[in-house]
């Protein structure tokens, strides 16, 4: 039997991990998924109490709540496997007879697939059901977000539509990778910091942002910047703006992908080398 990865052993471990997650953390994802219903009930009750009219939460408020709930899910990743830094619980985890790779794959499936699907699935399902049941509720979050994307896609950017500069498929991939990157970032933060797991992650992120800004400052003031100025002087602003926007978005996607892979390697390395 392989010491690195054995499917049967992985499946045993995955089922075990799923049970532990269900017992300890899935309830949080489910609770956040139920937020549209809670918001709806509170909104209707407040509306009936104060105005004696039946009204449902407007789309803009629902966007904000969805964003905040997604933010909580991202930050909460610092807690899902945060017990690994605890001497007692972490020792129990490390001594389970499964390989580091099996534990890592299971952790990634929980973080990137099961928890987001549970949260987003329940959230959007409830939102859709409320939209079906109550005519005051208006359109669903999905169709609202679709409308916004469609508008953005039509927007004129330096003589071209946004859709021309950045294909829709690539945009969706970028969004998913950014979300995954945030989830894995806070997962790693939970595995690294013994206390203040979320704050630690936020502080490192802030510090990293500062460093990146300084580095970007050096890059942009180099030869590239001079060529951009020359392009502007030559009157070809449209070409410049289009290539700048398209280039930035593609570089952003590439950097996010590399960063996500680096974070995943960091998680694997942390599981492999953690000591108690």
């Amino acid at each position: 039997m392989s010491e690195v990865f054995n499917f049967q052993r992985f499946w045993t471990y995955f089922k075990y991990d799923l049970k532990q997650m269900w017992r300890n953390h899935f309830k949080v994802a489910l609770f956040l998924g139920l937020l549209p219903l809670l918001l709806y009930i509170i909104w209707v009750l407040c509306s009936l109490s104060f105005t004696r009219n039946w009204s449902a939460p407007v789309l803009e408020v629902r966007y904000v709540f969805f964003y905040l709930a997604a933010l909580v899910i991202v930050l909460y990743q610092a807690r899902t496997y945060g017990h690994l830094t605890d001497r007692q619980k972490g020792s129990n985890y490390l001594m389970i007879p499964a390989s580091t790779l099996e534990k890592f794959v299971s952790m990634m499936l929980m973080t990137l697939v099961i928890i987001p699907i549970l949260f987003v699935g329940v959230y959007l399902l409830l939102d859709g059901l409320l939209s079906l049941v109550d005519p005051h509720y208006g359109k669903t979050l999905v169709s609202g977000i679709n409308d916004i994307i469609a508008e953005v896609w039509q927007a004129d950017l330096a003589g071209a539509s946004f859709g021309e500069l950045f294909p829709r498929g690539l945009f969706i991939i970028t969004a998913l990778i950014s979300f995954a990157q945030s989830l894995v970032y806070f997962l790693l933060s939970g595995l690294v910091f013994k206390k203040w797991k979320i704050l630690g992650g936020l502080m490192v992120s802030y510090g990293f942002g500062l460093v990146l800004t300084v580095v970007a400052g050096f890059v942009v003031t180099g030869e590239k910047f001079r060529s951009w100025v020359e392009m502007l002087d030559s009157g070809s602003q449209v070409d410049f703006a289009q290539s700048f926007i398209s280039g930035s978005l593609n570089i952003g996607l590439a950097v996010s992908s590399i960063f996500l892979i680096a974070l995943m390697i960091g998680v694997y390395y942390r599981i492999k080398t953690i000591k108690h």
Binding site: R9, L94, M95, P97, A98
Partner: peptide, 9 residues
């Protein structure tokens, strides 16, 4: 410290 599953078991 290699934490091989067979040894952990």
């Amino acid at each position: 410290f290699d934490r091989q599953p067979s040894l952990l078991a």
